[in-house]
Structures are given as C-alpha cells and as structure tokens.
Design a protein around this nucleic acid. Sequence first.
DNA 1: ATGAAAGCGCTAACAC
DNA 2: GTGTTAGCGCTTTCAT
Lengths: 345, 345
Amino acid sequence: MHRRSTIRDIAELSGVSITTVSHVLTDSPGKRVAPDTRARVRSAAEQLNYTPNRLAQGLRLQRSKTIGVISDLVLTTPYATEMILGAQDAAAAADYLLVLVSSGGEVALESREARALMDRRVDGLVYASMYHRIVEPPKELLVYPAVLLDGRSADGSIASVVPDEVGGARAAMAELISHGHRRIGWICDSHDVLASHGRTTGYRSALTDAGIPVDESLVYRLEADTQNTYALARRILADPHRPTALFCFNDRAAMGVYFAAHDVGLSIPRDLSVVGFDDQRLISTGVRPELTTVALPHYDMGHWAITHLLTVVDSGDRRAAADPPHVTLPCPLIRRESVSSPSRD
Amino acid sequence: MHRRSTIRDIAELSGVSITTVSHVLTDSPGKRVAPDTRARVRSAAEQLNYTPNRLAQGLRLQRSKTIGVISDLVLTTPYATEMILGAQDAAAAADYLLVLVSSGGEVALESREARALMDRRVDGLVYASMYHRIVEPPKELLVYPAVLLDGRSADGSIASVVPDEVGGARAAMAELISHGHRRIGWICDSHDVLASHGRTTGYRSALTDAGIPVDESLVYRLEADTQNTYALARRILADPHRPTALFCFNDRAAMGVYFAAHDVGLSIPRDLSVVGFDDQRLISTGVRPELTTVALPHYDMGHWAITHLLTVVDSGDRRAAADPPHVTLPCPLIRRESVSSPSRD
DNA sequence: ATGAAAGCGCTAACAC
DNA sequence: GTGTTAGCGCTTTCAT
C-alpha cells in the first residue's frame, strides 16, 4: 500500500500553502481563491489521486460522518435486510457511512458495541430490532442522537419508527371482507409483542367496522411457525363449519395452512382463502398459488431512521431531542393469488 | 452529549503528565511506571468514564482497527448472514470493528464504497459474494490487504475462502448410496457458477466411486427455484421408471420436489428420498418431513476471512501477500428425515 | 488572495 | 519513573 497522498503533497506540487489547498478542496464559502490557483490545486489533487483522510477530518471537525447501527439479531434475519438497505441508501445520499454491528442477541454485548461505536465517534446511533416490539436499548443511546428502528422504548424517550400493524391487518381483512368472507379465522402469535397486539386490534376493528360480530372461537393463539400452524390448521379444517378464510400472523404460518389444506384435499383459494403477513418472498412467491400477504415497510423504516437522525445531527446539538418523534409507516397489502370469494358459507 | 474526557483530563485529575497516562493506559511494554501512579491514573480514568478516541489513535497509529466488508448482495440474502456473524466474531475477538457496506449489486458503486472505506483508513477489506462464484472485485482491493469471501478471483491474486462443493455433493450422494439407492437423479442449476460445476463433479464422482454408471438421463438442468423444479418433478415422477432418490441443487428446488411428490401421491421418504443443498432453515426445517441437506460453511468462511486478514494486517506489510492462500472449507451433511432405503428398484 | 500557526486526541522518541 | 515535544492530516481563525 503506497503512502496515500495528503494535502501537503498537493500543496507542494501546486506551489501553494496547505491552507489554500484546503480552501479549494472544501470550497470554503467565505473564502475566495483565484480561479487559476484553484485549477492548479484541483489538477494536482487529481493527479495525486488524492482522497481526504476521514480520520483526520473527523478529529478536527469532531464529526466522523458515520452512523452506527446496532441490532439485536436483525442481521441474521432474512426479512430485515431491507431495513439496512433503506438506511444505507439514505446514508450514502448524505455522504455518510453506515457501520453495522450485531450483538447476536446478547444483551451484554450491546453496551460494549455501543461503546465501540462511540469510541469511533460515530455521529449518531440506530438501534434496530428484529421485530416490532418494546426494546430496552443500551443506556448509551440516551446521551446520543439516536433512533429506534422497528421498536419503541417503554418511555418514548428515543425517536422511533415502526410499522402500522393495525393498518396492515385492517388492509388484509378488508381484502377478505370485500371478497365476501364473513367467517374469517385469525391465527395469531401468542407472544406478547406489539405485532400480535396491533394485528389483533386490526382484525377486530375491521370486522366491527364491517358490521360482522367478532367470533372468539375463530381466533387462535400459538407460536406461529409452520409446523405448529400445520397442526392447528388440520384441526380447524376438519370442522365442517370451518372458516372460509384464514388470516395468518405471518407467512410461515400461512405455509403451514397451505400444507394442511393440501393434505385435507382443500384447494386454495377455491375452498379456502388465506392471507399472510410479512411478505417473506421465499414463501410468499414460492408457494402455489402465490400468497396474498401484507408487507412490512422495512426499506422505508430504514430510510426514515437515517434521514431523521441526520436532521438532528445536522441541527448541531448532538443530543436526543427533547420531544422525539414516533413514526408509524404503512404496511401495504400485496395482492397475489390466495384470495377469492367463498364458495359456500 | 457531554464533552468526552481525554487523556489530558485524566492527567490533570491524577496530577501526572499525559505521557504517563498514555503509558499506563496502553500498558506500553518497555515503559515502567510506579504502581501507585498507575493506580491513580487508572482510577481517574474510571472516574471520568474515559474511553479512547479511536479517530485520534487511528490517525496517530495509522491503524484504525476496523475492517471493511463490501458485498454485492450478500446483506440482502438470508443465508449469508452467517458469514457476517462469523466475521463479526473473529473481528470482535481481536478488538476490531467490522464496517459493512452493500452495493446492492451495482458494480458502479463498489469502487465508490471501497473508496469510502479506504478514506476511513480501514485496515483491510473483505469482499463478500452472495454465492460461490468467480468475482470481479473493485481494483482497489489489489493494493490493500484483502480477502474474497465465498468467491474467487479469476487470476487468484487475492486470498479467498470458499465452500467445498464437491465434497458436499459427495457427502449427499454417499448418504443416498449407503441407503441402497442406485437410480439417483441430480437436479442441477443451469447457471454457469462454481456451485453447479462443483456439485455436479461431486455427483458423478460419488457414483463412479460406488461403481454405479452415470446415467445422463438422470441429470436435469434448469433454473433451480421452487416453481421450475415443481414442474420438472411432476414430469420426473410421472415416469414409472423414475429415480428412487433426487439430489437437488438447493433447498428451494427440494421444496418443489416435495410439492410435486405430494400432488402425485408419493410419500417422502418412503417412495422417494430427497436431499437438498444450502440448509436454508426456513425450508429445511419447515417442510414435512424435515429435509436432509448439506450445509454451507458460511460462519466458518466468515471467521476464516477475518482471521486471515488480521494475520496479514498484523504482519506489518500492508499489502496483498505475494502468494495468497485459497482455502476450501467442508460442507457438512445435515441428516434429517427425507432419506430412507428405496422401497423398490 | 494567500499563508502561518494553532489544535483536534493521541503515541512514542527522547530527554531528565 | 516521569515529562517535553513532535507530529499523524486536517480545518480555521487571524494576519498579511
């Protein structure tokens, strides 16, 4: 690795002082420099293949132009990478670099990593959760410009952006209801997380709004993975008075329903409509017929997080704002092939 | 954000010079400092909640203690996050920080990002590919300590670590053959990538080693996703003289086989054994019966990449080594439930 | 319009 | 044992 060239090299080559070089390179607003000097410097920089040393800039400016992202398990979960992408795009647009670290879920490590990031003088911190829930971020976040991604703090003291679970569930239900379904089952995850509460609220309110009474025997709670749901669905579908549609907490659960329907000789969507949640492509476009589901706004959330963070960083005061915003982003319904009108009541 | 404390603060508080502070904090080997001064400094540091400014250290030491990771699409693909985890662990163990950036697959951006990383004076670069193939890394890598992850450069000029595709395929075939199968179909991806070549080689050699002639009518080539494979498998299974086992290029293809077998009334593994490749958990443990498959050593590859990189970085000369190693890591067979002895010949 | 010099926080000769 | 000092590469008053 060659010694990288510095402004001093440029200064020598173009016969000016480093001050002047700095002025032309940073386009200092107040500072005027003669057009031809400027040109000389520019070409010297070009010729030397100069790029500024961000470490030095950071030290001088007290601003590293990097944002740290801490995540519990988000990096290891397939459907959240879109968040990172959204964040990455927003960061790149502002000439910021995203530094991702993952604690692998070990809470003990999170503080350590927040520290590592702060030691590198990142300008802000994002704490990304692998799913929508109340998070307990490392306390370091409180004294730093920070935003919570796909999570909320208990006391609301940190800015956050989360998906509109209620709206997403309502959209799914509206789709089913508008196709004429009235007996719609809700297969919900039993964990005590914001996603299950929000989607359940959406399920109920959509029904109520449509004038359909909520039948509690139609809401099922379990750990919503493929296998559990398969077993549950076998039971549900064995009932002659079974629901005509099943709204599933996630796509994995929906896949379980697919398997069960198949085994029982029921055809989707002719005999049973199903809609999932998450739009986990591997499943949603992998199964036959393709799954109608509601997508999580991962990309948008990631983008919002960084965009917001940069506004507070750029505003100068490097601290959590007094009254941090809490944003909720829409979950769009993705229409595919697993919904049709009920063939019977 | 409070002003972070510096060694100068510590020096003042403990009544020594900053040099001494630096010495005790870095435990400079040659330097001896009186035990009680040492203690005073330590406690002052503690008290001030001091953590070193890595920017300043980096500037001074010409060593940032960070490794940059560039990836084509790896961050957006579910099964490669293990690579990152392995890399992260290795980095953390050596007090290095991993900086991940993703070009989203746009080649034009890769150089820009390599540059951004180099501007931050990362100590080394990893270029991670989303699947095993010949990669064309940004030329910046050539003048930097670098390693290719899950990819190889055409001319072998950069160190690399990849999975042992041949061995993995051989392990899968050995499993099938040892159960008594002799008519084993090979559903291979048609893309011209190292994975397809290596696995095909493994398929053939395992057969040959077992004294089973290779039947070319049993190797099928297509874009190996769930849907294509479903269609193919329907045709294969319709043949009365069909193979008794199907070895699939990946788990998605295997899932297609599952669907087809189901539709045709064939039970896995009683009527048909199947083994996949990739161990994509969502599928391999999601389907019924669980899928026997071969795993890619993502974690190990990530770990190796960083470990190797750090040895070259620490060796002092900050350049690609003259004769870079090319390592191949084993792909373990994961035995689950989709293989049994053939019920007929 | 340009340059000298200070200083961001740190480490490492080199004194004493 | 401990302190003085130079300097990593850069930006920015403040002179000229």
